[in-house]
Structures are given as C-alpha cells and as structure tokens.
Design a binder for these strands. Sequence first.
DNA 1: ACAGAAGCTTA
DNA 2: GTAAGCTTCTGTT
Length: 985
Amino acid sequence: MKKGDHLFLVDGSGYIFRAYHALPPLNRKSDGLPTSAVLGFCNMVWKLMQDARNTSVGIAPTHFAVIFDYSSKTFRSDLYPEYKANRSAPPEDLIPQFGLIRQATVAFNLPCIEMEGFEADDIIATYCRLACEAGGDTTIVSSDKDLMQLVGPTVRMYDPMKDRRISIPEVIEKWGVPPEKMIDLQALTGDSIDNVPGVPGIGPKTAAQLLEQFGDLDGLLARASEIKQDKRRESIIANADKARISRELVTLKNDVPLKEGLDDLILHAADGPKLIGFLKTMEFTTLTRRVAEATGTDIGDVQAAPVTIERADTAHGPDVGAGAPPAAAAAGDAAKPAQPPVRAEDTPPQGDTPSLLSALRLEKAAALKIDPSAYTAIRDAAALKAWIAEVNEAGILALEAETTSSDPMKAELIGLSMAVAPGRAVYLPLAHKNGNGDLLGGGLLADQVPVREALALLKPVLEDRAVLKIVQDMKYDIVVMSRHGIEVAPFDDTMLISYVLDAGTSGGHDLASLSEKWLGHAPASKKELAGSGKSAVGFDQVDIERATAYAGEQADLALRLWQLLKPRLAAKGLVSVYERLERPLVPVLARMEQRGISVDRQILSRLSGELAQGAARVEEEIYGIVGERINIGSPKQLGDILFGKMGLPGGSKTRTGQWSTSAQLLEDLAAEGHELPRKIVDWRQLTKLKSTYTDALPGFINPATNRVHTSYALAATTTGRLSSSDPNLQNIPVRTAEGRKIRTAFIAEKGHKLVSADYSQIELRVLAHVAEIPQLKQAFADGADIHAITASEMFNVPVAGMPSEVRRRAKAINFGIIYGISAFGLANQLSIPREEASAYIKRYFERFPGIRDYIEETKAYARENGFVETIFGRRIHYPEIRSSNPSIRAFNERASINARLQGTAADIIRRAMVHMEEALEKAKLSARMLLQVHDELIFETVEAEVEATIPVVRRVMENAPMPAVSMSVPLHVDARAADNWDEAH
DNA sequence: ACAGAAGCTTA
DNA sequence: GTAAGCTTCTGTT
C-alpha cells in the first residue's frame, strides 16, 4: 500500500444487525429463506464498489475487506466476565443470513476476515494503523460509536444506510469531544448493551463537559474532588475502578496478529459469473441484472451457485450463544413447504355488515382512480386567478396548508393544496427553498407566486360565505391561516365528520386512515417525502414536483371523503351533533390555542432547583439503605433490590414477569414499617414533578408570544372529551401540596386575573338525571353532600357526625358506578376483600334500584346496537361488546356505561364553550377563554371586570344543556378569580 | 432511532 | 372499575 491508496473496511457484523432491523423483511420466493439482510449487504457492497465517488465517501477504494466477529468470546470476557453477557440470541430468521453474508463476501471476490478471540472492531483498528503507517487513507463502513475512536486525519467512517460521512467534525458534533477522547467518554458513560459499566449518572453530555474541564479520564479521576456537584463527585470517586476497567474494555486493540496483510486486501475486479451465480441463487433479480450489465455478463450463461445454509447450532455468527435455540426453519430444507410471501399485500377495507360492504363496493366503483401525477402546480398569478374562477364555479374547495411544523403556532406556510372535484387538484407552492437560503430569505425557488400576492388573491374565496371549504383537521389550518390574517369560513371538517360517525370503531380519524378505510387507497406518506426523526427536512426543502403529487393528493382525498361521509351524517341522524357540538367548537379552540397562557419561568426554575435538591437528598438516603448506587428510576433494578437482595415480602409480578414496584404496592410495604419503599415513592414524586412539569414546561413557551400554547385534539377520545398535548395542560398536578406549587406558575397578565370555573359533580348529576334516581335528584336539588347522602342511605347512619371513613366508602362506590363498577375494582380501590365489595354493591343496588336498571339497560342497548348515546345524541361505538371473551366483553360493558356519563358531561361543557364567547361579548366583557380541563374552564380577564364576568360564565355553564335538553338535576358551577391557577382553582 | 412497558399526572 | 398524555427505562438498532 502506498500514499493515495484507499482502504475500505466494512464492519460486516454491525451491518448485518442494522440491515436486518432497518429493511423490510424479504424472503426467497422459492422456499421462504429469509434474505433481507443479505440483499441489503449485497446492495451496499455493490454500490460502494461501483460508485464510491458518487456517495458521501467521494473516493474509490483500492483495498477492500469485510470484517466479521468470530464469536462472542473474546479477551474482553476474561477482563470483565459480564462483558456482553446479557446479549440474547439473534432473531431466528437472521441466523441463516450470517453464513450467507460471508458467502456473499466471497462471491464479491472480497477478503472475508475474522479472528478468534478478537472482535471485528479490533481487526478494523489494526488495519487502520497499518494503512496509516503505509501512508494510505481509510474509510470504515459503519456508524458504530465504538469505532469513532479510530477517526483521524486519514481515517473516516461512512454510514451506508444514511449516506453520511463521519469524520472529525461529525464526531465532535455528535459527542462533544474529538475522536481521541472517545475512549475516555465511553469509559465514563458505559454501554448498557455491551454491559460496559461506566460511571452511573454520567451520560454523554456530562462526560463531554468533564473531559473538557479536566482534559482526560486520568486527569478527571486524579482531581475528582474538585467537582462541585455532590452527587456527581461522589459517583465518580466511588466508581473510579469501574471507569478504568470500562476504558480497557472500550479501547480497541490495534495489534491483532493478522493472517492477511494489506496487500491481500487489494481490490480485484468483480468476477461477473461468480457473483451472478450467487445472486441468482438468492433470487435478487434486480441486482443480478445490474451486475450483469456492469460486468458484461449474460445472465442466461450462469447457473445458480449452491450455497450452504447454516443452522443456529452450527453457525458461528456473533452472539449466537451456546444456549441459542436451533433455527426452526433451516431455510434450504427441501421438505419444508414454501412460506407465504412476506411483503404483505394491502388488506382491503373491512366492512362489518353486508350492507356496508356493498355500499363500499358501489362507492369504490363510482370513485375515480387516484392519480397523483395528474395534479398540477400553480406557478404564476394568472394561473392562480384562473383557478380561483374554477373554485367560484364549483362553490366548494378542499384545502390543506403545507407547512414546516406540526405546531400551528410555529408553522411557516410553504404552500397550499386545493381541490374542487375528485381528481381535480392543484398545488400552489409559495415558499419552497433550494437549501442555500440565507437570513434574508434567499434561496427561494423560482416560479412561485409571492406569498402576499397569492394570499391577497385567495382571501376573498377563503372567506366567501358562498364557498364551502373542506378540510381535514380544520383547527390546524385556522390557526395557520389566521396568523396570515385570513379567517377561513365556512367549512366542513372530514376528521370531525368521521369522528361523529364512527367514534369507537377501530382506526383513527386521520386522513391516511380514512383514505384506506373508505377509498381503499394508501396515500403517500410525508415520511417518504421529508424523512423522519432527526433526518427530517422541512416541507420547504421538498422539491415542488414531488410536493405537488403529495399535497394534491391530500386535498383530493379530503374532497372525496367529504363527498362520501357527509351524506351519512343525515342518514344516521347525527347532523346536529356535528353542527352543534363539533364544528362550532373548532374556531373556539383555535382561538384558545392561539391565546395561550402565561407561565412564570422563574417560579418553575426555582421549583426545579428545590425538587432537584429534594430528590438528591432522598437519593442518598436510598443508596445508604440499599448499599449500592442503583438506578432508582429503573423498575427492573428496583424490583431486584427490593424483593431479591433485600427480601421484602409480597411483591406481585407484572404481565412481563417483572416484579411490580407500583406506588400502591410500595405504600402497602411502607405501612408495614419498611422505610425504603416510602423513600422510593417520595423520590418518584419529586422526579416526576421535575421532569414532566418544571423542567419541560419552559420549553413550551413560544418565543414570539411568550406564552404556552397547548394543542387540543377534538377527535382523540372515544367519549367526546377533548385531549390536550404539547404540553398536556389537562394533567397539571393538584392533589398534593408539592404538586400544586406548579400551578402557581400559571399566571394572569399584569392587570388581569385568571378565573377558574368548574362543574361540581357533573358526572354524578348526569347519572341522577339519566337513571332518574329520586334520592340523588333530591340531594342535588337541596345542594346536599352527595357522598354523605349516599352513605346515609346505604348504612343507615345520619349525615350529621358521619365518620369520614363511611363517607369515603360511599364516595368510592359513587365513582365506581361512573366507571362501570366491578367488585374487583371497588375492592382494590378500598383495599377490602372482594366479598365485602360485592356486598356493598348489592346493598347499593337495593337502595338505588334505578341505577341497576340503568346499568342493565345500557349493557343491553350496547349489545343490541353496538353503540351507546349521550343525551345529546353523540354515538360511541363498542364493536367488541359481543365478544365471546368474557373479560373483553366485561370491559366493553363498563366502558359503555361510563361513556354515556362521561360523554354527556363532555357534551355539556362543549355546549358551554360554544355559547361562551357570544355571551361574554353581549355582556361587553373582555374575558377570554384560555383552557379547558374536562369539567373546568379557565379564563383571563382584566381585573376590573372579574366581578361581572363570574356570573356570566356561571350562567352559561349551568344552562349549557338548554335548550336542547332540560335536565331534571341542576348543574352547579364554582368559580373564583386569582393571580394564578392554584389560587383560582 | 424507535417501540413497548411501567409508572404517574389529571378529570 | 372510565377517559387521556408524558417521561424514563429497556431492548432491539
């Protein structure tokens, strides 16, 4: 090897696992032999040999080798017996592929290198050193962090699956340290997969910071006492030995006694017939053809070459432990019948009745073929004007905003897709960029109508009362468009129509699910267009042609679904649910989300500090009792310590066979006098509050508005409730004093107050109304203590002077009814024997026979119809209510009992929200709704109007069922104002 | 990277 | 016993 030569080292073992998991399963057609990893490997090697210049590598190889692990037993196991000890056997269908990939390597005319007692990584390290000494360059084909220590001026890595080059800057970017410090970093962080211990509590971020500060691991260990953070310092001092042994484990050996020298790795031209013979045997038709073309071989001249297929018990692939089960299907076995093809065909839409099926067929016959290539892009103002004329003619317009973010408060508008009839869709690109953009908005692609001009042209149509806009998930588009000064109306929302028709049936209400369900068509996914996870790009980076096909289809599908679904609302008597409870709530919620709520950063930061201190203190106490520094956050480790090492009693197992460490169980142990469980419960509370709330919330403060904007989902629950996410503001702590402090951070603007108004016992009131229970109705009419009345009825004790325990039990039963009571659940809740719980329920039904009737009637109705209804007519489906499995059936029965109550309560507050804005406006009040938490509404209002606002809010909420339904039980709303949410609640 | 389990928060 | 969403850990990369 000489200067200018280039050595490629492929980490064969690493690639096998990655390819196996990343690629869809693939089986040889003739006999089902699994081959996805083999094909991935062959494609990758072929590509590297053909066009390394065209990939991120940029250089063609002169030397090439594929390196494999020989077995899991290496010198490291002697150093540290636990090393890689918890590796399990590879998946069954991967086992035969280890051998095949070695044979593929040989077929490619490439050296296939492995060495007993050493890992592939050590061999790679040794070749790296040799190549470097000879003056050559090296590319390691792998993305394994264990190899990053080898990166240097002449050595880089290449990730073939992401086409990404990893050299010194990329290592620094990813890990915060240069390659030569990777060993020390790994020694500190450890590796749970390989069982490298590291130092507990030190992750990559901390490790990088420490190495920056102290130079290297030895420096750090020598001067560990200087570390300021108590816990960190002690952990490092206590675990110095672990760090040193970890360093030995992760340091790659670069003096492996190799059989093949660098000259043995010189790359030879592919032997066409030999390679094609192998590929033919594997039945890789596309690759076979490509290789044949490139090598000038006639495929017909080549016979498929025999291959050897190893069974698990003979293969010496890495990590195939001695205890690995033999592969069930040694795939070449001729006696085995061919397995079914693995790439499953699209399943046809499911209908549950013959009439639905036939209706489906009719519609599908009527539906035009969906052809994304037929959509066009609007590239100038003249075309846009022509399109607008077409829209006015049609009177309907399906619409979707294409943006850069799923958060509508941050999303930049990139384009609009529009459709006026099935198959007649266009895409209007507005802000697609070429990737070379600068801060001044350069990089904008040519031939796009300027945003301002386009929106000015579109605004009249989008706001035209005579043009119905059809949108899938309108709330998102309302927020985005209103940020551009356009109030889109009127509209229909296909997601909400589906939700009203089909809440509770399987499948979501998103466009892709609806398209598959009703049109039998899987739309192009955004993932395919823009990638996913870290490598995702903004929609502005998608080229306009591909964006047109994708976006046009979205609008086309929304339009077709609307045509299909809208008539069904009337057919099923659900128009008023849609028009009164769903559609009008959309703009209301859009405004609430846009307003957001003010959150005090300083309060949260102070709380975070307090919680951190508290948690650290409890943590030390726990370590003191346990005697080692376990990860308290790991239920697995915790279970082992509590019930194994410390031998605490009881302990049930979860369904995965782990010890249960639930709060309930730990509380019980604490009650028996054990001190450790109490501390664990405390620790969990502190860390939960910190991670979920005080640490996370500041990250949701929108820099532009300085407020937190949650997102409400209208179609996420089965019962009609809303849900809140990003952040979820419907589960902010309230039960404990510690938790409630978080609510003090939710504050009113200066000169304003927060008003909180919540329904009292709304679900029990609904129960009293629908089940017509005289005693409960009377109690609510009298404004009495409902749980005390229940207890008094059941146990014949007077309300005055009632022991709190008696009332508590009655309260649990009342809640139990709402949840579709079971003796098992009640017994759990009250920590009493199941027989006793049964007796309570029996007694309850004797005193309130109307409730038993209500329950039985609900079950019978659900069984008969497959759904239940709220008093406003909302339908909630329970397709499994007739299941032959008793536990599934019972679950559906309980859920349906609950759904009538929870759903009715949800409908009531929806109606209140729909009526609220108009009532406030009429009363000339400036109060604004900010949040909804199922039975509570939170407003912000100027201080001077607080007193006038509360009665209006209360009136709207208490009268919300009217005039649709007149309830026989009064609703009661408590409301108060304060500077923060804690005091207002 | 991502999925699932466990655990915890709310009404 | 009902209805949700988020974080951490774990186990496959």
